[in-house]
Design a protein around this nucleic acid. Structure first.
Length: 751
DNA sequence: GATGATAGCGGG
DNA sequence: CCGCTATCATCC
């Protein structure tokens, strides 16, 4: 249909999933209905066709660009809710990543290419009653089929029929003569039952800690009253729920969700780890039935698709998921819970480098919702926000049933080394305690935040270590695989017979990880049932869930692992926690090193003594006087906060300042440094209320054959956006650098 | 991130 | 001069 010459052009703004591209303008051809905000459209982009998302359906034509027509409107209705589009746009701007990637994250993977449906269907057959015209069954098989179907009022699916010996061909011939009716129906791929051999639905863990109807402690009652009052106001508000480990935060989330859903609004719950999702989601499902959905990247594409569409249709009141669930298409949100808000896994370490907790707060503002950030060890950021009056603080200082916190013993490993040599991994104290628990049939956790068997292999002749050919780190020996592996690029190599540098024949292993500890314990305690959880043992889907379930059911005596075992789990029979080296990470050139150490120690110590028997923790360290270890041992958050905040303020680190970390990559270190220096110069010229530090080679100067130079932009927290604006302007002037530069706003790790 | 344009290279 | 690969700007 030719458009009338007077009608104005219909122009829309579209975000395309291309890194570094802003929103683009397209024309809607005359006669085509203008797609709404949040709908997907197929658009031409250079020489190809991509699926984009409508960001503004009523835009003005751009001044200096030739317009092209959209090729197809995929969705007549908004595919993404408008709030989610706004949230993605905010993320794209705040984290300097552009809108495309953020919008892509907001969609299920099955929809990113513009596909219309990805539902799984099954054919259901049922008997057509009163079909007088139909001929009688022609054979034994058909007669059998009719009998079976006659006894199944709702009909049966073809797979069900096949299981009873009725083939699809039989059913189809009956359908052809009108005796049977066939219908396609959608079956939901259900992550609650998938991969769970015992059929326990995955909610093995926290179940007994939160029996419905159990009386709350006085503290819990007060906290719930305050939180409920906030939720009832239906206004944006952020509350930090600071409760010691085992104080019953989860129960408060459940009751609060009950109040909010009863008032007709919905609930979004973020958890830091995929491994924690099934447990918490299972609890919500036990309380709230089927109106609960799960969202995390560990689901299969099909499951994710189905869960997403359940949410989008409004079939769901509660969504439990990891950071990307902050973009869930849930409408009328009244409550957002961010559990373990201090966890670093909320930060995405690739574009868009958003922080799930902070985006949750922004979403809460957009939705007029109550945001509850829960933690036993709040981030410095959240603590500072409470102090500044931006967040409200609610506190749980005691454990449920008044269970005592675990007693903590710090073992000075320097004395241990002096007495028994540098190879000691388990102190006498820890060994005795483990033996004692084994004898009593109680469980122990052994934490070491370093995986592998030996962290370094070095040559005794020249002293050199075996390094990754592509990265500037040494390779770790993994005994199960009998290979050396790079923990940065996954490069794997056989263990060489001789030193590559000097041909020396004596290669020695040094340093140890969880794999070595597991072997040590197996040798020391031959009868013990020992399991290990770290990134090497979790490759298979559901593997962690299975091991953790085994621990919960008492099938494991000693669980060895990295930080993955420290988080959130409730193991009532664990009475001992051993931290083999509290120092891993303390030596890193990262301003959060002490915070991470304190949090990890506090969390893991909190795993002990959650049942009837009081818990004990043994922390081995060579820095027994370090404030993060002392405060963790004393379980004194306030003491840690005071010291750490002083450090951040004096040395100008977050949350005292706003920080942007910029990494420039290059084929040589010189190229990277030169590029970084150019940007630094330009950022200084542009000027902002702040300081630029660097550039310098990054802590790991080479990763995957690329050299990396780094600089920081620090600005007053009141001028947070100025720093980002300055680096974006500098990059706009240097498109050659833009492609090899990473801008990390509010970085969690600066390594 | 993908694509088409272009530069750089060796073989005939 | 052709055909191949590496590099790079552009995408509305």
């Amino acid at each position: 249909v030719p458009s009338s010459p007077n009608s104005p052009e219909q122009v829309i703004l579209v975000a395309v999933p291309v890194p570094g591209l802003g929103v683009l303008s397209y024309r809607v051809p005359a006669g085509v209905a203008r797609p709404p905000k949040g709908a997907r459209v197929m658009v031409p982009l250079g020489g190809r066709t991509v699926a984009g998302c409508v960001v503004d359906p009523h835009a003005a034509p751009p001044a200096n660009a030739e317009l092209r027509d959209i090729l197809e409107v995929v969705d007549a209705d908004p595919f993404l809710p408008p709030v989610v589009v706004d949230l993605a746009l905010w993320v794209g701007e705040y984290y300097a990543s552009g809108p495309g990637d953020a919008l892509a994250i907001a969609m299920p993977p099955s929809a990113r290419g513009g596909q219309r449906t990805a539902f799984r269907t099954v054919t259901r057959a049922d008997l057509v009653t009163g079909a007088p015209e139909a001929p009688p069954p022609r054979g034994l098989k058909q007669r059998e089929a009719l009998t079976i179907l006659g006894e199944a009022p709702g009909g049966l699916t073809l797979p069900d029929l096949a299981r009873r010996g009725v083939g699809a061909a039989t059913v189809r011939s009956l359908a052809a003569v009108g005796r049977v009716r066939l219908r396609e129906e959608i079956v939901e791929r259900d992550p609650f039952t998938a991969g769970d051999a015992d059929g326990a639905g995955g909610h093995w863990s926290i179940a007994q800690a939160s029996t419905p109807g159990r009386a709350l402690t006085d503290e819990q009652t007060d906290a719930l009253a305050r939180l409920s009052a906030e939720a009832a106001r239906a206004q944006f508000r952020t509350v930090l729920l600071h409760g010691v480990t085992g104080s019953g935060k989860t129960e408060l989330y459940l009751r609060l969700a009950d109040a909010v859903t009863a008032a007709g609004r919905r609930v979004l719950v973020l958890v830091p780890e995929i491994a924690l999702t099934p447990a918490l989601a299972g609890l919500f499902r036990t309380r709230f039935g089927a109106r609960v959905a799960i969202q995390h990247s560990g689901l299969s594409t099909g499951e994710r698709h189905d869960q997403w569409h359940r949410i989008r249709r409004g079939d769901v009141d509660i969504v439990v998921g990891t950071r990307s669930a902050v973009f869930a298409p849930l409408e009328r949100i009244g409550l957002i819970v961010v559990d373990e808000e201090h966890e670093s896994s909320y930060k995405q370490e690739e574009a868009p480098r958003y922080h799930g907790r902070d985006v949750a707060v922004v979403r809460g503002r957009m939705e007029q919702a109550l945001v509850v950030l829960g933690s036993a060890t709040p981030s410095l950021e959240s603590a500072a926000n409470v102090r500044a009056g931006r967040y409200e603080g609610v506190y749980l200082t005691r454990r449920i049933f008044d269970r005592p916190l675990a007693t903590v013993r710090v073992v000075d490993m320097r004395q241990e080394f002096a007495a028994r040599g540098p190879e000691v991994r388990f102190s006498e104290v820890l060994t005795t305690a483990l033996a004692d628990r084994l004898a009593k049939g109680e469980q122990s956790l052994v934490l070491l935040n370093r995986r592998g068997f030996a962290s370094v292999v070095f040559c005794r002749q020249c002293g050199g270590t075996i390094e990754c050919p592509r990265c500037s780190v040494s390779l770790t020996y993994h005994r199960a695989a009998r290979r050396l592996r790079c923990h940065y690029c996954d490069h794997a190599a056989a263990v060489p017979k001789r030193c590559a540098a000097c041909q020396g024949e004596y290669l020695e292993q040094s340093g140890f990880g969880t794999e070595r500890l597991e072997a040590d314990l197996a040798a020391r305690f031959p009868g013990a049932r020992i399991a290990r959880v770290d990134r090497d043992t979790v490759r298979r889907r559901g593997a962690v869930t299975r091991v953790l379930a085994d621990v919960a059911r008492g099938r494991i005596d000693i669980l060895v692992g990295t930080q993955m075992i420290a988080k959130g789990h409730d193991f009532p029979a664990v009475t001992l926690v051993g931290v083999v080296s509290a120092d891993v990470g303390l030596g890193l050139a990262d301003f959060r090193a002490a915070e991470r150490t304190f949090q990890l120690l506090t969390q893991v110590v909190g795993r002990a003594g959650r049942g009837q028997i009081p818990g004990e923790a043994i922390v081995q360290t060579i820095y027994p006087d370090h404030y993060s270890i002392r405060a963790a041992a004393a379980q004194d958050y306030a003491q840690f906060l005071a010291r750490e905040m002083e450090f951040r303020t004096t040395l100008h680190y977050p949350p005292a300042v706003a920080l942007v970390n910029v990494i420039v990559k290059g084929r040589t270190l010189e190229a990277a440094l030169t590029g970084a220096q150019d940007l630094v110069t330009r950022v200084r010229e542009i000027g902002l209320a702040g300081r630029v530090l660097g550039p310098a080679p990054a802590a790991i100067a080479r990763i995957k054959e690329e050299y990396r130079a780094q600089f920081f932009i620090k600005s007053p927290t009141t001028r947070r956006n100025a720093a980002r604006a300055a680096i974006e302007r500098a990059l706009a002037e240097r498109p050659d650098l833009k492609r090899r530069t990473i801008v990390d706003v509010d970085p969690v790790s600066v390594m």
